[in-house]
Amino acid sequence: MPNTLNPLELIARHWQPSARFVRRAALATVVMAVIIVVTGGAVRLTESGLGCSTWPKCTPDSLTPTAAMGINGLIEFGNRMLTYVLCAVIGLFIIAARARAPRRRALTRLGWAQFWIVMGNAVWGGIVVLTGLNPYLVAAHFLLTSALLTVAVLSWQRAKEGDEEPRDVVARPVRQLSWLLVVATGALTVIGTVVTGTGPHAGDAHKVHRIPLNWQEVTQLHVDFVYVVVGLSVALWFALRAVKAPAAARRTALELLGCIALQGVIGYVQYFSGLPEIVVGLHMLGSTLVWIAVLRVALALRERGPLQVDDPAAPAVDAAPDAQLASAASR
């Protein structure tokens, strides 16, 4: 009996996407992860967290929102539907990575990791609704989305480079400084979720349980960690200049400083203006851009060789279009 080919194998036999297509598909997963964060914030900031009163249906008797639920039901249901768009984009990346020759198992594994994070977070989001927006579960919901963004950025980076063992392009202490920056920024993100859990934007117009901590004290802790991240970022930039790191690495560090400066301005505006919804939403967008920039700096300090291509005469890596797309997405 002949072996039965799975659908991905069949596609790979009839379609050979270019390396650029795979990279752009990977970048699309990054963009979609950012959109999911922003739209999830919109659900909270418009008090639509319980716009759909149950899960997986929107109401006990309807899969979709009813007219009586108003705009809040539409916003919450729309955010749920966006998950399918995200899955479609991730699916495109998985198919393209699998069809691309030579086959790169590490790349397809990263694609599947994104898919399973989305599935797990969708179930977790349902639990959040069923528990009436428990603030601890809401915080974990956001952190799972941050994990998705992390894997998406790693997928984008791996789509642009080869599969050799990673080699440092700077002295090891500088690399260690970059990873310390990643840890500090991760801690900043976690504290930010606690600030949200204690703050006024509970996600629904009705009374919702909040984390029993002083909002202003937690906010001050968050600000303290901002200074830590800023200090580490500046130190890393000077270190890269001192060791004459490659221009690309120094450029990513400078981009990070720009993102942090913009995020700092937004943070102070939202604090001193009483946390207006639109500014809080921009702050959430800024947090994703800072996290992307931090990861890009850390990943720029090692190399894995050129990307293998079918045509030896073709350039190994053509990252310029991707850089332009990323720059446009960050504006």
Rank of each mutant, 00 (worst) to 15 (best):
R103G: 03
A101S: 11
R158L: 10
Q176V: 12
K160L: 15
Y136G: 06
G162S: 06
G125L: 05
R103T: 01
Q176W: 12
V129G: 04
P166T: 11
A122G: 13
I127A: 14
W124V: 08
G126Y: 10
V169R: 12
S146T: 11
N134C: 02
L148W: 02
R167S: 14
H141C: 02
R175G: 11
G126S: 10
I117W: 04
Y136C: 00
A152F: 03
P166Y: 14
K160Y: 00
L107F: 07
I117D: 10
L143I: 08
A147Q: 02
R105N: 01
V118T: 10
P102K: 03
A147I: 05
R103A: 09
F142G: 01
D168V: 02
P173F: 10
T108M: 05
S155Q: 07
R109N: 10
L143S: 01
V123Y: 12
E164Y: 03
R100I: 00
G125I: 04
V169T: 14
A113C: 12
W156I: 00
N134V: 05
A171D: 15
V118Q: 04
Q114R: 01
L148A: 11
E165P: 01
G126L: 12
R175T: 13
L107R: 02
F115C: 07
I127G: 01
L143M: 11
A113G: 15
L137N: 05
F115V: 10
N121W: 03
A171K: 15
G162M: 06
Y136V: 15
R105C: 00
A122F: 05
A147S: 09
A140V: 15
V170D: 08
R103C: 00
P102A: 02
W156D: 10
V123Q: 10
S178G: 15
E161Q: 14
F115M: 14
G126P: 07
V170S: 10
